[in-house]
Amino acid sequence: MTIAFGFLAGMVLVSALGVVVSRNVVHSALFMSGSFLGVAGFFVMLNAPSLAAFQVLIYVGAVTVVILFGIMFTQRPQVRHYRTIINRQFWAGLCVAAGVGAFLSYVLWIEDWSSAQAGNGPREVAQLGRDMLGVSPGSEIFALLFQVVSVLLLVAIVAAIVVSRRKVGTGVDRGVEE
């Protein structure tokens, strides 16, 4: 378990750093999918294999493809200088992020987790399904949350279509021009 944890932690963190420091945008997107795969491995270790399947389907599959489409429409995949991809707040941003990470890690480390014991996750898919539908005791709120998220997804899809649609007869699709 510790070997798998170390491998997955290295994969997640190195890929996450690769997203930030990679000079090629397409490489950033592929590093991001590697990081999501590592998180899916963590979900398997944490007794949530069905959530790991969701993670692979939605993040590694769908979100990465959508982001690659966005890259394809908006820019040429080429290596750029760090001057042009990083704004002027490089070191200030590094200090802020390192401070946030160190503070969170410190707070989580000094907390007393002695009562925590692994193995409470919904390992069975049927258990997760009952939780999501609000049938099992203690999860009644999910009956509402599930519907709210469904409506939110519908609204977001309609909004994405409306925002990205070209007005009929006005302008050209400039992403295709060059």
């Binding site: 963190l13 930030v20 945008v25 944490l46 820019q75 991809i85 490089f90 941003g93 992020a97 946030v100």
Partner: peptide, 30 residues
């Protein structure tokens, strides 16, 4: 099996790296 703190700290460092990237990169897709 690793303790709870190990998972929490990996999540915290991942959050910090993402925050760093969101602060310093110029490209909206990144």
């Amino acid at each position: 099996s690793p303790p709870l703190q190990a998972y929490l700290i990996v999540g915290a460092i991942m959050f910090a790296i993402g925050a760093w990237g969101a602060l310093v990169r110029r490209n909206a897709v990144v």
